[in-house]
Design a protein around this nucleic acid. Structure first.
Lengths: 73, 73
DNA sequence: CTGTGACTTCCAGTCCGTA
DNA sequence: TTACGGACTGGAAGTCACA
């Protein structure tokens, strides 16, 4: 199984990349998302199988569409 | 909470549309996704805040990318 | 600033039905 | 074929202390 990297890992890397691009720390970004700092950290490390509502929050906080956020995954 | 159309509702409508396009019944589609039939029904009705792994399953079962699935949402 | 393990609460997700 | 209810289990949501 797992011919490609896991979806959660890839999603986390994508979030980290976009978050860093914007010059946010995890903590600052977490605040914008209204999520806990450690929770966002867990997402970026691919440890969290987050649900659609939180995916939406993250996309909004990055100021892009969900579709854009999911690009390449 | 004054949202025009909740993300879950919009996602559900999108899934229903794409699933029906392919001529699958909810039950047949649920079987392909390896999800419960009542759960798929709940998703299409916008009652379920499903997680990323299951979003991926649905996209795969529809034979499109997650990004494509999320288009317009 | 970030990683991580542990923790509680509540919902994601399953299985049984009925209409 | 789909909607929806009840009851259940595992895991997502959310937080904390400390490295």
């Amino acid at each position: 199984m797992a011919k490609k990297a896991d979806i959660l890992i890839r999603f986390g890397e994508r979030v980290r990349e976009l978050r860093a691009e914007r010059g946010y720390s995890q903590e600052a970004f977490a605040h914008i998302c209204e999520l806990d700092r450690t929770y966002v950290g867990g997402i970026e490390r691919g440890e969290r199988n987050l649900a659609l509502r939180n995916i939406e929050r993250i996309a909004e906080s990055l100021d892009i569409s969900i579709s854009e956020l999911m690009k390449g995954l």
